[in-house]
Write a protein that binds this DNA or RNA. Structure first.
Length: 697
DNA sequence: GCTATGCCGTTTTTT
DNA sequence: ACGGCATAGC
């Protein structure tokens, strides 16, 4: 531990931002003159420390525009900037803040053209990338011949892994996608074609944003980039990947000070190629780095931290430095383990506990229900609706990924970037009688993607032979695009105008077309306040308005419960946390077991979940799971408590709502014994047996 | 070449 | 249960 250096510009009165910091936090906030690694355990005031550091930098005279704050989500950046703002005033708003992807986007738009990157590019979201790959996959005739060629989705994750881990394709295939090995040559050419298509269409996908950023650092503008910032702070460093770590290193110039903050015990984004090795290697990558460890927890009571500490004790893959969280809040409610009969009962009991906590003075706003996967809350959502408990759900199907919203966005995208072939195809195919082949012919006629062509103008001028049944739609399309082109309408009104076209296509295209039209209005509302269409498009791609529920608050009161995946809950805290489905097979997820570090990451996920709770923690698991959540039958398997929590039972108060009969049959979920499977089938055949229908509606 | 039909996997997590 | 995707008919 290095001695804390004094602030670089000491003033007689220390900045207010540093007033409440403990000695280690203060040291972290005021350290200068070398790279700095802050290892901040859960709830140890990491945000306060980072905010203090930024405030102290500003106080010491650093130009806010020369501070880069890389955070995991744009929300986190906004929160930090606003907290700094409260301490040092509005200049804080000039700090560069955002995710790696959003900062990449900004830098590429500013400096990209000097490095040979087309300006006015469009950002492809996840779904777009898959669609583009799917098109190429079909074009190259790889899908046929019955030879089980990897699906577009698989190819995308393979490619993404290659980029983000910076390993060659051969190795990625061999190590992470062995079943694709027979196709490795086809995959290589397919990825090349994908890259070429993106260039031709002037689009960048998520991975490109990072790739191009790094490429810029070694281009003629590289030195200019390194001169942009005096200080780079990277939050959640344990969740960065190899490419991102390279970018950070490449952005550090002669006079740049870099500071990384993270907690390897909370590394939960391995599936996105993140690795806590970045944190461990920081002192090597950045020679002379100081490190500071924060261990005093200000969030939770000791009974909760004991669970957290015990979880790490059992970790197979040890964290870099063994450490224990401690808190001065020694007493508190012991965590509760809620053993339920089945999912229905779990929903009911959890809802009751939520209401009970509210009776005891814990507002809904101070409570959250956390789960491994978005659909785990389905049953609870029904129960909450039945009881009129308002909630907001973070997780599940994303609004922007619904087909009809993409239809609408495609219209905006061709206005924004007429070279965007994918968007054109989507728009053309939304007309009656236009399938892949006709869309392709129309694309030819409009000269999409041909040099010096202006497909938009050609369309508006009446070029393009549409099928007769699409005549009216085509007319409306031309009129709507004509009205929206140019700068006469702002993005919001443009969407309203395009909605008139959607009114002609949605009803035929979608079962519930009318309901989907409501989303046009929602998007128009979201666009209000933007003056630039391109900015609106980019921002919602890089920072999606999240999930469906997030777009419109559930009720008029500002009192609601939070439902969230554990991943989305990172960085948040609540007085009472209810963790659902802590059954073996869910946490750890059955799918994680085969992978390197898979089990360890699942344990860290559980660690993240329990450390969100300040005062009350309820962990529940249902003993009976449905075998197939898609089927509406009573087939089920018997689950047992997560292997991570089972040894920790003495730390919990147990509420058991099971029959002994059920308890005896518990096996790990996912390793269903034949007997249990048969048992479940028999139950459903017999119907109305005591086991299969123990809990009625 | 478009659309209706049938099969298969699907949902773990997100920029 | 549903959607994506491949095959068969109009």
């Amino acid at each position: 531990m290095p001695p804390p250096s004094p602030p670089s510009a000491p003033s007689s009165t220390p900045p207010a931002a540093l007033a409440g910091l403990n000695p280690r936090q203060l040291a972290a906030a005021t350290h200068r003159g070398s790279p700095l690694l802050i290892v901040a355990g859960a709830g140890t005031g990491k945000t306060t420390t980072v905010v203090g550091r930024v405030a102290s930098l500003l106080d010491g005279g650093v130009d806010p525009e020369r501070i880069l704050l890389l955070t995991f989500s744009r929300r986190a950046a906004a929160e930090m900037v606003s907290r700094v703002g409260a301490l040092v005033g509005p200049s804080a708003r000039q700090v560069w803040g955002g995710t790696f992807h959003s900062v990449a986007n900004r830098l590429l738009r500013h400096y990209g053209s000097a490095a040979g990157i087309p300006d006015g590019f469009t950002v492809l979201d996840h779904g777009d990338s898959i669609e583009q790959l799917g098109l190429i996959r079909a074009d190259e005739g790889l899908a046929q011949r019955g030879k089980r060629f990897p699906r577009a989705e698989t190819i995308n994750s393979l490619y993404s892994r290659m980029v983000n881990t910076q390993r060659p394709l051969d190795r990625v295939v061999e190590e992470d996608f062995p079943w694709c090995a027979p196709h490795v040559d086809d995959l290589r050419s397919l990825v090349r074609a994908y890259t070429a298509a993106k260039r031709a269409n002037r689009v960048l996908d998520y991975d490109d944003l990072l790739l191009f950023w790094r490429a810029m650092t070694t281009s003629p503008v590289g030195e200019a980039l390194r001169c942009l910032f005096d200080h780079i702070l990277v939050d959640e460093y344990q969740d960065t990947n190899a490419l991102q770590a390279e970018i950070v290193a490449a952005m550090v110039g002669h006079d740049t000070e870099v500071c990384a903050v993270g907690d390897d015990a909370q590394a939960i984004y391995g599936f996105r190629a993140a690795t806590p090795a970045n944190l461990w290697d920081f002192p090597t990558t950045h020679p002379g780095a100081a490190s500071i460890v924060l261990e005093q927890n200000y969030r939770s009571t000791m009974p909760i931290l004991e669970v957290a500490n015990a979880l790490l004790d059992g970790a197979r893959a040890p964290v870099a430095k063994p450490r224990r969280l401690w808190s001065t809040m020694v007493t508190g409610t012991r965590p509760t383990l809620l053993c339920c009969e089945d999912e229905t009962q779990q929903s009911r009991l959890v809802a009751e506990r939520i209401l009970d906590a509210r009776e005891r003075g814990i507002d809904l706003r101070d409570q959250a229900v956390l789960f491994r996967a978005g659909h785990h809350a389905d049953g609870l959502e029904l129960e909450l609706a039945r009881r009129d408990i308002p909630y907001v759900k973070y997780g599940g199907l994303r609004y922007l990924e619904t087909a009809h919203v993409k239809d609408l966005l495609a219209l905006l995208r061709i206005l924004d970037n007429p070279a965007d072939e994918l968007a054109w195809h989507r728009v053309l195919r939304s007309l009656d009688g236009v399938g892949p082949a006709t869309a392709r012919r129309l694309a030819e006629e409009l000269r999409i993607n041909k040099p010096k062509a202006d497909p938009l103008a050609r369309l508006v001028d009446g070029i393009g032979r549409f099928p007769s049944q699409a005549a009216e739609q085509a007319g409306e399309l031309r009129a709507a695009l004509a009205d929206c082109a140019g700068g006469r309408l702002e993005p919001g009104p443009q969407i309203d105008r395009l909605g008139a076209f959607c009114r002609l296509t949605f009803p035929a295209r979608y079962e519930n077309g009318l309901a989907r039209l409501a989303d046009v209005d929602r998007l128009a509302t979201a666009a209000r306040g933007y003056t630039s269409r391109s900015r609106f498009l980019t921002e919602i791609t890089l920072d999606p308005p999240g999930r469906i529920g997030e777009v419109v608050p559930p009720s008029l009161d500002d009192e609601w419960l939070t439902l969230s995946t554990i991943h989305s809950a990172k960085g948040c805290e609540w007085r009472a946390v209810h963790l659902l489905n802590a059954a073996d097979g869910n946490i750890p997820s059955e799918m994680a077991l085969g992978k390197d570090d898979g089990l360890a990451e699942e344990l860290r996920l559980l660690y993240v979940a329990v450390t969100r709770a300040k005062g009350e923690l309820t962990v529940s698991f249902p003993h009976r799971f449905h075998v197939n959540r898609f089927a509406n039958d009573d087939r089920h398997v018997y689950a047992r408590l997560s292997r991570f929590l089972d040894p920790l039972r003495p730390l919990f108060d147990e509420l058991v709502e099971l029959t002994d009969d059920d308890a005896d049959r518990a096996v790990p979920l996912g390793r269903v014994g034949v007997a249990e499977e048969v048992d479940g089938v028999l139950d459903s055949l017999l119907g109305g047996s005591s086991t299969a229908t123990a809990t009625g509606p």
